[in-house]
Amino acid sequence: MSRRPPRGEYIETDTGNKVARKATLVGTQNIMLGGKTVIQPEVMIRGDLIRSIQSSSSSSSGGTPNNTAVAIGRYCFLSRASCLRPPGRLYKGAFTYMPLRMGDHVFVGPSSVIQAASIGNHVHIGANVVVGEFAIIKDYVRVLDETIVPPNMVIPSFSIVAGQPARVIGEVPEGGHEAFELRELYKTVGNNPQPALS
């Protein structure tokens, strides 16, 4: 992952986001990035899948409808070929997508697909993981490689989950909280990457 990319592979925004030129962001106006987030090549974010049914208050009052499809916090890291896709369901007889929300310091491993309703802060999702529609992952959760989190599953804080379907296999120990920090990892990618701390 910390391969040195050729110069200019990333677009670096004012808020410190590093978005690979080879990432596919659909419906960028509906994708909110908190800043300092890394989006690696081949990542796909489906910002086009917006709510088709607006909550009654916003549509009647004539205010600008909230079209956020994907909201990402600070220091998130979306690895190569991962995909963020808002979940969808029938609501009062009609199909609609709902926003996908992600907190700070969320790592998404390569080739993982995320369709959660919400992912908290300090979450590590491994490689080839599928997070089903409307799943809720709370803070300080570690999802191991190849896990399939079923739709609607709730994963409480400090869980280590694995398996198909996912089950809680352990607890994040008290001394393991700092390992979720992604500040250092953020520095190791981009157009001027810094070497990882030994």
Binding site: K138, D139, Y140, P156, S157, F158, E174, G175, E178
Partner: peptide
């Protein structure tokens, strides 16, 4: 339940 804070957390690290 919903908070992840600790009042005391003396980790060896």
């Amino acid at each position: 339940v919903q908070t992840t804070r600790f009042r005391i957390r003396l980790v060896a690290g």
